[in-house]
Structure formats: C-alpha cells, structure tokens
Design a protein around this nucleic acid. Sequence first.
DNA 1: TATAATTACGCATGCTTCGTGCATGAAATG
DNA 2: CATTTCATGCACGAAGCATGCGTAATTATA
Lengths: 156, 156
Amino acid sequence: MIDVDSFDLKMLAALQDDGRLTNQQLADLIGLSASQCSRRRMRLEEEKVISGYHADLAGEALGFGLIAFIHITLATHSPDNAKRFRELVERVDEIQEGYSLTGDADYLLKVILRDLKSLSDIVNNVLMPHQSVAHVRSSIVLDRLKESAKLPLSVL
Amino acid sequence: MIDVDSFDLKMLAALQDDGRLTNQQLADLIGLSASQCSRRRMRLEEEKVISGYHADLAGEALGFGLIAFIHITLATHSPDNAKRFRELVERVDEIQEGYSLTGDADYLLKVILRDLKSLSDIVNNVLMPHQSVAHVRSSIVLDRLKESAKLPLSVL
DNA sequence: TATAATTACGCATGCTTCGTGCATGAAATG
DNA sequence: CATTTCATGCACGAAGCATGCGTAATTATA
C-alpha cells in the first residue's frame, strides 16, 4: 500500500473520470502547477497506482448488443483441471472478465457478444463441451444500472 | 450502428489498449498521417463510438482488497420498487456495476471494498434492510482470471 | 533547538504534439 | 465525361510536455 496524499487522490479521481486531462487542466482542478502535475502523474504511473489508460468504446454502436454472465462449475477441482479452464478463459476473446468465486459456482464469466446466437455458440460449443466444465448457467443482462468501473475514492 | 472502416477499427483497438496514444503514435500504428488520425479520433468521439477515456487504477494499491458479486432478489416487481432499488444502487459508491438479469436473481451487483467488514456493512446495513430487497446472496472474488473491460474487436 | 539533508514546488524553456487551413487526388453522382 | 464530394498529407501557429534550476518547506540528525 503506497502513500498517496490528497493531491494524488484528487488527481486519481480526475484521471479516473477523464484519462486525457492535460497537466494544466489537472493543475486547475487540484491546485498545483502543471509541471508538478506532470511529475506526480509520472510517479503514479511509475508506481503502477495508475496501471494504464483506456478508451471506453460504445459496445452497442459497434454491434455488441448482448452482455451475459455465465456461472461455471468445474468437473473436478484438481489443479490440472483449473489450469485447463483458465487457459480456455484466456483464449476466448468474448470473455471480457473472469473471476473465481466463493459460493455455489466456481467461476463467474462476463461475456460480450453480438446476439443470442453468439451466446448459444459460446455456451454450447465452447464451454459445455470443454472437459474441465461440469455445469454452465447463463444469465442475460436486461439492463445496465451502473457500469462505472471506477474505484470509490470518495471513501478514502 | 455506425459505419466504421478498418482504419477506425485499428484506431479503436489501439486506443482501447492505450488511451493516451498520441496522434503520431496512432499514425505509425495504423498507417495514416497524424493529422488524419486527429480528425478520425475527433469524429469517433463526436459520434460517441469512443464514449470517454479513463485511467485504470490499481485498487489493491489503494486499499480496495475485496471484490464481491451480490445477487439481489426484489421484494416485489412493481415499478415503484424497482425505482427505489435503482436509486439505492446509484447512491452507493461501493457498487461499481449493477445489472438487471434473467435467471433466478433479479439483479447482479459488483462491489469493490476495503475488507470483509465493509462487505458486511453493505450487505447487512444497506442492502438487506432496504425495503425494496427481499433476498441477498453474495459471492466473494477469490481470484481474477481476466479483467480486460475491452471489446473483442477481433471478431468484427 | 539548531543545522543539514531531503523533498516538493513554481517558473522558464526547448521540444513535441495538437488542430486546422489548404491543395491534391480518388471516388461517387448526374 | 464533368462535377461534386470526400479523405488525405503537408504546413503552421497554438498548446502541451518534460526537465533544469533556484527557492521554500519538510524531515532527519546532531
């Protein structure tokens, strides 16, 4: 856990909202000079507190109309089997996120797809037949209430 | 669905990976001049194909050591009740993402927290007591296999 | 507490990047 | 064919960038 002062926090919050803010804009927002913002930002990048910058793309505009969550139960919990499953997750581009969980399912996957046919493909032709997988349960996203992907820095 | 040519696709893929690429860097990557990259990028932003840019922060370095998924079942499915629940989701900063789903639960929430105590707080003092909520089931993230948040533009 | 060392800061500056005007050439239209 | 439209590269003034430097503030040491 790295030491981060209030200037850093303001900077992180601002860059979380707009990753292309200029140093001058940051300076105006947080009350430092632009040069100092440049130095602080470089330090935060160096320390990997800022791990990267990403453009946020409108999935629907690009034809990705369907998001689904897929709960996976593995056939066995052997290390080999887990490894095979992780390689599968890594390989399939449509799997945006993958987590190992406590609870009744072993893994939760978030997939982003064109349509229901693509979901059917993934579920029936990729996940279900895979030797590591015992059980698949998918839920389709009907509505997105919130999708911030931002840390609640306000609580710090 | 907006028309996007192969230059745009390369640009989107590149900016998805690094949101602070300069126009010159983009130019070298996709084979256009920097000025043209500037114009294309502005167009994609204007058309909201690029909806924004965000710095990616290292949650663990900032003290957010716990991610959990929470399945919610509402007490009733009346519009009023759903509205109340959505307002709750909007209000609570720790809820990073919220989706309405098909399947046995009505909603899926992704929360990011300091520790188990914070999770207990959210579940027992915020979600459970809320009048709109009937049932809460939370799963703790043990491991993150993948967390790209990127569209699989390779499939286009 | 006094002094030294370290750190953070703003300003100045050379270099890079940005957006836009303009002329050229390719593709579409009539 | 002639004309219009549009994407492109180049040129250029304005803005942004990282860094050196001197000063102030903070921290460490005696």
